[in-house]
Design a binder for these strands. Structure first.
Lengths: 331, 331
DNA sequence: TTGTATGCGTTATCAC
DNA sequence: GTGATAACGCATACAA
């Protein structure tokens, strides 16, 4: 029952294991007849090379470790799909690991990869720089996705939050909105930080003199509803809400409409991410092509591993403005 | 720059590699002082055991291969999360692979796992039995999730579609619905097949004498809209629609309401899965606890790998009826 | 308690 | 063109 090894094939084909290895790996210094005998024996025994032994001998696992935080459903699946597709095409397998908190578990997850993968892709919008530097295995090439701003050495793929926010603010201003309220994300989230900072910049650029208004949030629907309550209660005078992600925007949208506020008539609502729900409910938002980012990350990492690419470069991906019904122009 | 090996640690601590191995693996036949020296050396060198070499030596990779089809976003992420959590807790890592079609790619993905993982979890609602039997590596313990009905040997985790459909039909009948139309899924999908068959059974049980009406669909929103058009056009006399998944139910719901049909006043609509959108739009549906199924699959597979569990058992998971606004009782 | 030596399954470097 | 054989990094039976 136990798997056939290269030795079994060699015995079966009456050749040495060296010849089996050569024949199976397509080297040309094998006589045609020998090769045929080997191939036949391998087929008959149902032989499949032992990837573990192979990687030990080659010092190459043809595997990539991927460490992800708890992502929203569609994000997670799209991202993984993009990576898996690309990795599979280039003959690599994917070792996946979620990290939930920023405790030792994260470091352990990274450590567990040593000796199984050739490189690492780490998405950690909430992990701090010191933590990251300390946990990343020294000998493993790794690529950071939306990592902390400080980690500019080493290859990086990240979303261009500044351009994205700028595009949305420009769109809102063009739609005759002037009093735009921004709902931010978690303090320790890099993307949230960048979006909030960019919002201040964009407001200064488009509406100079107007003081930017930022509410704090945590990426949940409830945060959006809380913002809606504040607006409905009259605490905030505004004609547009721009949330740092879609879930908050949707919560706010629902809260406003439940209170009888006309959206987009009186207040426009915009989000960030373009989750499926956003499309369904007609929410204007910034679309992040997450599968593409995943694929690019894999491509770049493999290029580095195979010596084809320059490492150390930072790559920024552009989000795309998707205008739907929640931001129709105000009169 | 290259990683430290056990040999480096041994040299550094002035002991043999055997002692290093013993100390690091917590065996008790090591003098305390020796252990301390080893631990100190390992810490200083930042030594991390090479998992590949370890697994070759132990004949245990402490890794599990997971092969999944293209799942809906929330399904995919929840499922993977459930598995990852459980695997991580028991000291295993997860090797993930998507399969898109039923071609040779699937077989290759499975083959690529040999020598890297100790066992396999395969979800393949669309893969045929012969294909599966032929591709599954002989020596690898594997667990099927919602596999073809014929594969009853070997351990299995699957959804109890029959009970689920029965529960929904019972609910509709209790809500005074009598003319229930069922929208089915893809022909080659096991779940879709089971749900359709169960629908006939349940109708026969609850509404004996009434001929069951089944429309064909493909799990997409469009299929639901098509059904709605047929109903609106008067081709079907019905007071309830039960779709084999949520996306079709939502498509139908939208189609009906767009045409001015009162839901649930005139027609009730129900789905299957409980995707986030269903909750958002108040769709009555069957909730599938997919994370739990994933966790159970991992648990059982590891139990088998470690000789703690009986293999060969089939485990069925119950879905849960979630009543929302689209099926309020008819007068 | 500790060290030496062998094997895990493969590839690669030699001889032949 | 082919066959021994030494790595790869680790665990462990056996010897000391």
């Amino acid at each position: 029952m136990s798997e056939a090894t290269i030795r079994d094939v060699a015995r079966h084909a009456q050749v040495s294991i060296a010849s089996v290895s050569r024949a199976l790996n397509g080297l040309d210094n094998v006589r045609a007849e020998t090769r045929d005998r080997v191939l036949a024996a391998a087929a008959e025994l149902g032989y499949v090379p032992h990837a573990g032994a192979r990687s030990l001998s080659l010092a190459r696992a043809h595997a990539i470790g991927v460490v992800l935080p708890d992502l929203h459903g569609e994000f997670f699946s799209e991202f993984v799909r993009g990576m898996d597709r690309e990795a599979g095409q280039r003959g690599y397998v994917m070792l996946l690991s979620n990290i939930h908190d920023e405790s030792e578990q994260a470091a352990n997850a990274l450590r567990a990869m040593r000796g199984r993968v050739d490189g690492l892709i780490v998405m950690a919008p909430h992990l701090g720089e010191p933590m990251l530097r300390r946990s990343l295995p020294a000998g493993l090439p790794s690529l950071l996705i939306n990592g902390p701003a400080g980690m500019t050495d080493g290859p990086t793929v990240r979303l261009d939050n500044a351009s994205a926010v700028e595009a949305m603010v420009a769109h809102l201003v063009e739609s005759n909105r002037r009093r735009i309220v921004f709902i931010g994300g978690p303090e320790d989230n890099v993307d949230a930080q960048e979006r909030a900072a960019a919002f201040r910049v964009s407001i200064a650029r488009h509406l100079s003199g107007i003081q930017p208004v930022l509410l704090s949030g945590d990426f949940t629907e409830e945060a959006g509803e809380a913002a809606a309550r504040a607006i409905v209660a009259g605490a905030l005078d505004c004609d547009a809400v721009f949330a740092a992600n879609d879930m908050m925007a949707l919560g706010c949208l629902q809260g406003l409409r439940a209170a009888g506020v006309d959206v987009p008539g009186r207040i426009a609502v915009a989000g960030f991410d373009d989750v499926p729900l956003a499309r369904y409910l007609g929410l204007t938002t910034m679309r992040v092509r997450i599968a593409e980012m995943g694929a690019r990350a894999i491509t770049r990492l493999i290029d580095i591993l195979e010596g084809k690419g320059a490492d150390g470069a930072a790559e920024r991906h552009q989000a795309e403005l998707v205008v739907r019904s929640t931001t129709a122009a105000a009169d």
